[in-house]
Design a protein around this nucleic acid. Structure first.
Lengths: 122, 122
DNA sequence: CGAGCCAACTAGGTTAACTATGTTGCTCAC
DNA sequence: GTGAGCAACATAGTTAACCTAGTTGGCTCG
């Protein structure tokens, strides 16, 4: 990274992208430049760019779609944030439930099919 | 990582630690085990543990202090709005992700093995 | 006895390489 | 012209290595 402000590079990039999103320069639905482009643009390594994007993903500001790109999340599908406590509890329960079911079904899939067929693709 | 649920290892660890924090098993102010300990405990590489802790740091659940350790943040000193929104966003993303994968894997299971099964589940 | 140094342990940051997986567009055979 | 297949490019995850820097406790030396 360029600036030597003491703030780590991946956070600087994350800050910058966040500002562009909040500022509207990166509209909802718009794709971020690719990892490689960002790396070149900020004169950073691929790794720090990936870290930066990871931060934004964790924050829920962007959504990464494998094979396609990373897109700015729509404001509407973001935080209603009504009363979060109950919602958080509910979501947490849902996650736990889904994880369990997934684990179970995936295990069964692994034991039942050893070859794993052509995996559909498009 | 142990479980092969499809959910990435660093998120599994982050989930687990988050649950311990929310559940009170890791009280505010208490230190998390060191990176090395966690790596051994979860049978994961140092890298994924660092990623997991990084997620919790971005979420504001813990605060890392270089040279000392990583400590659970006090609930009061948490930024309520920002924190809950980001967490809701993250949980929502997790639900979406899990649902998608579950659907995919269940479909695969249905097509590859037409009989098999007991387990009613849903 | 006390001051200072040093070794061990801690988190944090950076980079690079490899793998997996998904998407898209082009080409080529038919 | 259509479809299959492939190459190129995308994100995502994992691992490993190296470096920085802060903290702490013990040990040595004056």
């Amino acid at each position: 990274m360029v600036k030597h402000t003491g703030r780590p590079g991946y956070l600087q990039i994350a800050d910058d992208l966040r500002a562009q999103i909040r500022g509207g320069s990166l509209a909802p639905g718009a794709p971020l430049p690719s990892t490689a482009k960002l790396a070149e643009q900020y004169d950073a390594s691929l790794s720090v760019v990936k870290l930066a994007v990871g931060v934004l993903r964790t924050e829920g500001l962007v959504i990464g779609q494998q094979g396609k790109g990373v897109f700015v999340r729509d404001a509407e599908e973001q935080p209603p944030a009504a009363d979060s406590t109950s919602e958080v509890a509910e979501l947490r329960a849902a996650v736990q439930d889904l994880s369990l079911r997934l684990a179970k079904v995936e295990e069964q899939l692994a034991t039942s099919t050893t070859h794993r067929s052509g995996r559909g693709s498009r």
